[in-house]
Simulated assay, not measured.
Amino acid sequence: MKYQKLKKALILLEDGTIFHGKAVGREGSAFGEVCFNTGMTGYQEIFTDPSYFGQLMVTTNAHIGNYGVNDEEVESDSIKIAGLICKNFSYDYSREDSNGSLEDFLNENNLLAISDVDTRALVSYIRDNGAMNAVITTEVDDVDSLKKQLSEIPSMNGLELASKVSTKTPYFVGDENASIKIAALDIGIKKNILRNLVKRDAYVKVFPYNSTFEDLKAWNPDGYFLSNGPGDPQPLVEAQTLAKQVIENDLPLFGICLGHQVIALANGISTYKMHNGHRGINHPVKNLVTGKGEITSQNHGFAVNREEAEAHPDLEITHVHLNDNTVAGLKMKSKNVFSVQYHPEASPGPHDSSYLFDQFIENIKNK
């Protein structure tokens, strides 16, 4: 077993660059877009977040696995990343309320992970050259074949992935006697979003990604929610049509991350693939309405066109990312609609953004 843990592995980027490491456990190859997350904690939540579907995750924190895993710290029913890349992998863990080791959790989910990688050099390279497709592999003597396979992996730009992570059938969360009913479109929804709605006395019905406005409206909800999720928002034509119809009927609507981008597209505002995205738990955002700063959790590789949003007569930019001035929040001036490009449910320490759920509930009550 120890021999397998030390088996040679490598990362091959689509531009031909190679980084070396060691296999954590299982052998083989995993393909996806390589990206990095700067969070110091929360690796289990990251790995199970549907928004990361199809991505090879580089963790910039030097130690991964040191506090094990907990059954309650998941954002979906399984690991969603395509593979893990880290510096130091901890096979042993030391937290009293852990249910087991990260090694066992990865093996149960059949996830390929490699450690002993110079992640500082890899992240620096991604920052300079942008997010790109890659393969992590223990097949270190078959680079030419891997290059050919890698060339056939589709770019994240234009890739629809919501269908890969969405529920197949509607389901309910919360107390059916709650005071508010919310219809949520699952294009990659996180469990903690549902928890935040439920604890505010909402009964939530979660619908598949390709549901129509008529499907959601038939349940007679008080408000509508568009979730986070993976991939490019532009191919999600059905979700954009649904958003347009909710807006046209002047119904309360709230969107997070991918849902935020869908609302922008429904208003004729374009989106674009970022150089390397925002992924971490300490991203600074300014609320332009209150003037206050927020420390936020973010995970997105696409963004809303700011110039087009500023020129739109019925949209107001409510939040901006202070590192690069990208759009972090929108609201419609004449409709009961708003959205943010970060995760108010994540609470990575600060709870700066949890007020957004209260705002949604208030919008519903005051409609």
Score class of each variant (00 low, 15 high):
residue 169 T to I: 09
residue 350 P to F: 08
residue 282 N to F: 10
residue 16 G to I: 09
residue 311 A to W: 03
residue 189 I to R: 00
residue 354 S to F: 11
residue 147 K to D: 04
residue 224 Y to A: 02
residue 262 V to N: 02
residue 343 H to I: 01
residue 26 R to C: 06
residue 367 K to P: 00
residue 185 L to C: 01
residue 58 V to T: 08
residue 340 V to W: 05
residue 140 V to N: 00
residue 230 P to Y: 04
residue 292 K to E: 15
residue 195 R to F: 09
residue 257 C to A: 06
residue 356 L to A: 04
residue 127 R to M: 15
residue 237 V to L: 12
residue 192 N to L: 12
residue 92 D to M: 12
residue 51 S to Y: 03
residue 310 E to T: 02
residue 301 G to A: 10
residue 183 A to C: 01
residue 253 L to Q: 06
residue 35 C to H: 10
residue 23 A to G: 13
residue 209 Y to G: 00
residue 102 L to H: 06
residue 244 K to E: 15
residue 118 D to I: 08
residue 32 G to H: 06
residue 24 V to L: 05
residue 207 F to K: 02
residue 197 L to R: 00
residue 126 I to G: 04
residue 149 Q to D: 14
residue 59 T to L: 15
residue 197 L to P: 00
residue 213 F to Q: 00
residue 58 V to G: 05
residue 187 I to S: 00
residue 165 V to W: 04
residue 186 D to N: 05
residue 352 D to Q: 05
residue 342 Y to Q: 01
residue 176 E to I: 09
residue 161 L to C: 12
residue 141 D to G: 12
residue 152 E to K: 13
residue 362 E to N: 15
residue 344 P to A: 01
residue 88 N to I: 10
residue 335 K to Q: 12
residue 110 N to G: 09
residue 301 G to P: 01
residue 268 G to N: 09
residue 113 A to Q: 08
residue 61 N to D: 13
residue 265 L to K: 11
residue 337 V to W: 01
residue 15 D to V: 04
residue 316 E to Y: 06
residue 358 D to T: 10
residue 260 H to W: 06
residue 250 D to F: 06
residue 85 I to M: 01
residue 181 K to T: 13
residue 209 Y to E: 12
residue 105 F to V: 11
residue 50 P to R: 05
residue 356 L to D: 03
residue 72 E to P: 00
residue 311 A to D: 11
residue 110 N to V: 12
residue 103 E to G: 07
residue 175 D to Q: 11
residue 35 C to F: 15
residue 97 D to N: 15
residue 114 I to K: 09
residue 11 I to W: 02
residue 86 C to G: 03
residue 341 Q to E: 10
residue 194 L to Q: 00
residue 113 A to W: 03
residue 247 I to S: 03
residue 253 L to A: 08
residue 225 F to W: 01
residue 130 G to V: 10
residue 63 H to K: 13
residue 161 L to N: 12
